[in-house]
Write a protein that binds this DNA or RNA. Structure first.
Lengths: 190, 190
DNA sequence: GTCTATAGGGGGATAGAC
DNA sequence: GTCTATCCCCCTATAGAC
């Protein structure tokens, strides 16, 4: 990996972390550059505008997620194990400095972020939903999940719940977050 | 009502609307003053700091909610009607320019808002949970609600779901929001 | 209560040297 | 690729006149 790819990667890591910590309007190039030990002009070299940076963070996450779900380590799991893997992503965010999910953070500020970033967030949210829906279908067909209504709606509910629960945990603590995770399972598993 | 109380009230209305639309770091005194047709110094007269303003908005909402739930028009409803009333609050937010709930907006930016505001948000979230929990208990005891687990956890789940669903709707549309509302009911009603 | 005026800082972004 | 330097705008906030 070349030096520039390394710089870009480090910047994206910091930006992703800051987005999940403070939101799009809560962080600045100065946060990144000082942490990285460079001047803010260096960040602008890699990502000319803040919108570019935000888009790149979401785009990278989408590609990462696609790789995960198409990898046999996830693809070949049972529906129940897939669900646990997915819930684990959110549990890890909570454990990692009380971060919230990217989609939730950006949608909360949706009317105060650039257009191009909105489109990217929309695409990410759709992809998460599609995967979760198909997992729910698989699990219901296999007899391990039980729920009324359509898999698409149950998927939207669970995703909304996770998004909200990570935010709730910031005010009410990690214990409450874990209680919600358990409740999701109670409402889904046979 | 005196003129100053009217001004304060109008400012609070605008601030509440802006908080739900753009978040704490997405709106400015200029947004309010231009809308109100005054200069920003006039806003500072009523609310010296932005933190003061944010706190006042949340505090007013908490008092409003307390009045509602203690009023016989809500208090004397059946548990099922209470739930519908509560869900209606969120449906109305969605219908009102795609707003999100105050708690969700503030918690998404939690690490980028003033300390005093955080405390106020925490208090509000607790109060919403307490009311919802007692309504769920009442409904389960009365045989109209059915769910596994503790009422406190189911309440936290439903509140997280509503919070997330309003945000999700910004990217995926109102139809998806209504589907989630219906799914909440499917997962709760006997 | 609202105004004018302004302080003081931070933000995103760019030009040009190295 | 990163630097220095700087521009320009918007922001929160205050002082003092009316």
């Amino acid at each position: 990996m070349t030096r520039i790819e390394n710089s870009k990667r480090t910047i994206l890591n910091l930006a992703e972390s800051l987005l999940q910590d403070k939101g799009f309007n809560g962080f600045s190039y100065a946060h990144i550059s000082s942490e990285l030990g460079v001047k803010n002009a260096a960040i602008h070299y890699h990502f000319p505008s803040k919108e570019d940076l935000g888009i790149a963070v979401i785009r990278r996450y989408r590609e990462r997620f696609k790789l995960w779900i198409n990898n046999s380590r996830v693809k070949d799991l049972t529906p129940e194990a897939k669900l646990d893997w997915f819930l684990g992503i959110y549990t890890n965010m909570r454990a990692d400095q009380g971060k919230v999910c990217l989609v939730g953070a950006m949608e909360a500020e949706f009317n105060a972020i650039p257009d191009g970033l909105r489109d990217e967030v929309q695409g990410m949210h759709k992809e998460l939903l599609v995967w979760l829906q198909s997992t729910l279908e698989e699990g219901r067909d296999g007899g391990v999940f039980a729920f009324k209504g359509e898999p698409a709606d149950k998927a939207a509910l669970i995703l909304s719940t996770l998004q909200g629960a990570l935010q709730m945990a910031r005010a009410l603590g990690t214990k409450k977050f874990h209680n919600v995770i358990e409740q999701i399972k109670l409402d889904l598993l046979k």
